[in-house]
Design a protein around this nucleic acid. Sequence first.
RNA 1: GCGCUCGUAGCUCAGCGGAUAGAGCAGUGGACUUCUAAUCCACCGGUCGCAGGUUCGAAUCCUGCCGGGCGCGCCA
Length: 548
Amino acid sequence: MTPANLAATVLTATRAVFVARGLDAAVLPETTTVERPRNPEHGDYASTLALQLSKKVGVPPRELAAALAEELGRQPGIKSVEIAGPGFLNIRLDAAAAGVLARDIVLAGPEYGHTGRLAGQRINLEFVSANPTGPVHIGGVRWAAVGDALSRLLRASGAEVGTEYYFNDAGSQIDRFAKSLLAAARGEPVPEDGYGGAYIGEIAAQVRERVPDADSLETFREIGVELMFAEIKASLAEFGVHFDTYFNEKDLHARGELDEALERLREQGHTFEADGATWLRTTDFGDDKDRVLRKSDGDWTYFAADCAYYLDKRKRGFDRVVIMLGADHHGYVGRMKAMSACFGDDPAVNLEILIGQLVNLVRDGEPLRMSKRAGTVVTLEDFVDALGVDAARYALARYSSDSQIDIDIDLWTRATRDNPVYYVQYVAARTANVARNAAEVGLTRGEPDDFQPGLLAHEKENDLLKALGEYPAVVASAAELREPHRVARYLEEVAGAYHRFYDKCRVLPMGDEPITDLQRARLWLNDATRTVIANGLALLGVSAPERM
RNA sequence: GCGCUCGUAGCUCAGCGGAUAGAGCAGUGGACUUCUAAUCCACCGGUCGCAGGUUCGAAUCCUGCCGGGCGCGCCA
């Protein structure tokens, strides 16, 4: 029995009690959940439904709980139901009812944990979006890991997802980049406001390799951007991140989408003219100040392009536009939300802006700021060079994006318990190893129908089963809350439960002992664990090694 | 000044209104003739920044302070 099944059973039993007692069934929720109490004395699962409903129907919580407990106790698979505290229902399952989960998980395989929770939603995810003026730096790195994990989570939850990288290869940043390249090629010093990392010299040299007599700004701009962007894509690819769409701001201008956006905003009545410029009255929707769309010199502002880009995404059918920004851009949230409202959208539904706090790479307690390539910032390549792809992705995805984090290079490259990614990956390797050894001695799971779930009655087996059962709910809530770190934390919990199971419950026969049904049942559990760990790591873009 | 965000064990961090607030590290003490100990077990460690409020119940929600980070252009 899965937690979801049990929750449904609780609700069914509650409905039966309501009917029997003539209570108003209209107050019953559509769905409910059961919790997994930390304290084993509180049962395998607990429901707070009696507490939630008692006031609504005017029945004292413990009295309502007693009625629910009696009805629930009659349901198949449930061993006992106790009332505790103000009206908690503490539920214990039959070992067999709990154990079948192992088989369900193995049979579901890579699909285990996938739900239709977000079915019908069309979600656009924009992240990284670094302009091709240098390597992807620290602000983009966190979102490369978290945004990519989020896209996998949302897809696993049934949403239709489009990932997107937005860039501008025609603006003044690019001018400075091109001027820096040209100066480097000519052996001149870095221009004022130019870019100074070592990569500038490398790219400049590559441009000269391709066009030996290159000496125009235009040549360096065109080829330099091409080379830089290819490099960004390559380092993202090495990191395991691919985008469905690379969106260039130039295309918005070329297609006249800024004019169109302005027209739409004007129709909605939120624009005005002042000081020779065209403004959007974002203060109508809570922004600090109104924003200029078209400057008095006739040029568009960057914000105008943001408006057009948002409209473009909406026109492409995305009902939820998610944009991931670094903390240094959080000042844009107000105007972006207001802009969405100005289009007539509901910013609470149609536009989500996620702000990721800053990341420091730390070595020996000192922040690592120097980069050979980019000069003063830490790049994606620095991360991968220092930690490797798996540890880098896991380290970035393991923490709430709301908190600033320090990533200790020494910790994340260690092969011990303190390194969470090794701790989790070691379970993947251990389960694979047990499966290999089992095959060698002729131990197989056997046919699904011959599986005897009731044999999985050991405390550590029960703990592991309960942990594995949480997986679908963890994935769904991580997707809904846009918080991939929940998956990582959960995997660490499963890893702990498996290591404790491994320590206490031997799967393989000793010496030439005959093979028993218990060992076969444990092999189901072993393989179910591997399924959950592999599925969860896949959501984070981290490998589940067969051996370590 | 205004806004966003964070403040939980010595350190790094979990905890989408539930029971006695958790994990790892650090510290102390244990477990390897093993299914690879890259593991496991025990002990130690807390005014959940402070003060109010909401309610059966608050680390969690609301308000005000205090402290850290970041941001407040007709820049891109």
